[in-house]
Amino acid sequence: MKYLANVTTLEYDAEKCTGCGRCVEVCPHGVFVMEDQRVLITDRDRCMECGACALNCEFGAIAVDSGVGCAAAIINGMITGGEPTCGCDSDDNTGCCC
């Protein structure tokens, strides 16, 4: 299953990659593969912008504008003017992920 094409904010700088493989280890959609001690991006459209790769890349080779891909959370954020957050930890359950 793939979501909308050409929307992800994922950016990868191959120059900074040391081939440690952390991003391959943490990506839940197999966006990265290891080839010749360097990482390659296979299919950007599989990226869900969870941010695990960027957080765990020690060398600053990956950047992504991460956040929840959840309509209710984003609508909440629009209404309150804040960050998109799920209502899962409040009484007002938005029917979101958790």
């Binding site: 979501y3 929307v7 990226c47 504008d65 891909g69 029917g95």
Partner: peptide
Amino acid sequence: ALQFTGSSTYTGMSGVKKEL
């Protein structure tokens, strides 16, 4: 159905924002 993006395991924020 759009709300189900919150339960899905593969939708990213940029895509949902575009849909909205």
